[in-house]
């Protein structure tokens, strides 16, 4: 796939921290509407890939295209503006602010906010604030959280916080959504609902999704294509069925028999 065909086109990106090669020569192309997975043992570099994509770490080598437009080297807020949204492994909501304000902040990037318009409260400014509020409430309604709009975000139960974070990400009107372990800390009931939710928001918002997840039930069920990372290297790429039977992947997760101490048996 060329950068023009893929919605998200990652070409040969790498980063090292000191001597640690956290991500090496990572490439991936996701077509429009694709739902791809990124898995690997702890410390494999999955979240680092997300941080490179969103500009948290500046990229030294490699290229990233979003909708045919090169986004590496841009500042994080420009990348968000270009249509990349993410959630965080350890939820990062604005805890002191209300649920509604969290989502309204997501809308910020699509608006115009000049200082003079804010102070004068021009008709455009007021109209925009109203549009932001009604849009945020709509989004919260999709996640069944509209009745919690005035609650401080940190006072929500864990599962609701995850959903608010996704609502906030969707408020930025992204083309690509990066989900970092959305199922972490959820019980099996919630995980089932999460699968449905991921599918339905992809449909409803026309999203292209890249998903980091440790829960194999979720990954194998929703993803069309999976990339496996280990020690920063891509060790396998394929459909869920191919990945499940891939020898290198099993070794990365479970180790090889030769690694067992002498005399030990499995």
């Amino acid at each position: 796939m060329t950068p023009a065909d893929a919605t998200l086109h990652i070409d040969d990106i790498s980063i090292s921290f000191g001597g640690l090669k956290a991500v090496q020569a990572f490439s991936l192309a996701i077509p429009k509407g694709g739902l791809y997975g990124l898995i690997g043992p702890n410390g494999a570099g999955k979240t680092t890939v997300f941080n490179l994509l969103t500009g948290v770490y500046p990229l030294k080598t490699g290229r990233i295209h979003l909708d045919g437009r090169r986004i590496d080297g841009l500042k994080p807020h420009r990348i968000a503006e270009a249509g990349m949204a993410r959630t965080f492994q350890n939820i990062r909501l604005f805890g002191e602010l209300t649920v509604l304000d969290n989502v309204r902040l997501g809308c910020h990037v699509r608006g115009k906010h000049s200082l003079s318009a804010t102070l004068i409260r021009t008709p455009h400014h007021v109209g925009q604030e109203r549009a932001i509020t009604s849009r945020s409430l709509e989004l919260l309604a999709i996640f069944g959280l509209d009745d919690r709009a005035d609650v401080q975000a940190r006072n929500l139960p864990y599962g609701d916080q995850r959903r608010v974070e996704i609502a906030r990400a969707l408020a930025t009107e992204p083309t690509v959504l990066l989900l970092d372990e959305p199922a972490a800390g959820m019980n099996s009931q919630e995980k089932l609902r999460l699968r449905e939710m991921i599918r339905s928001i992809r449909q409803q918002f026309g999203l292209t999704i890249l998903l980091i997840e440790h829960d194999m039930g979720v990954v194998m069920d929703v993803c069309e294509q999976i990339t496996v990372l280990d020690y920063g290297l891509t060790i396998a790429v394929g459909t869920p069925a191919e990945i499940q039977s891939n020898k290198a992947v099993i070794e990365a997760y479970l180790g090889t028999p030769s690694e067992l101490p002498d005399g030990a048996s499995v």
């Binding site: 807020h77 990037v109 408020a171």
Partner: peptide, 10 residues
């Protein structure tokens, strides 16, 4: 509240 999250939403 959170600079990293603020940047990530633009």
């Amino acid at each position: 509240e959170d600079e990293v999250a603020a940047r990530s939403i633009g």
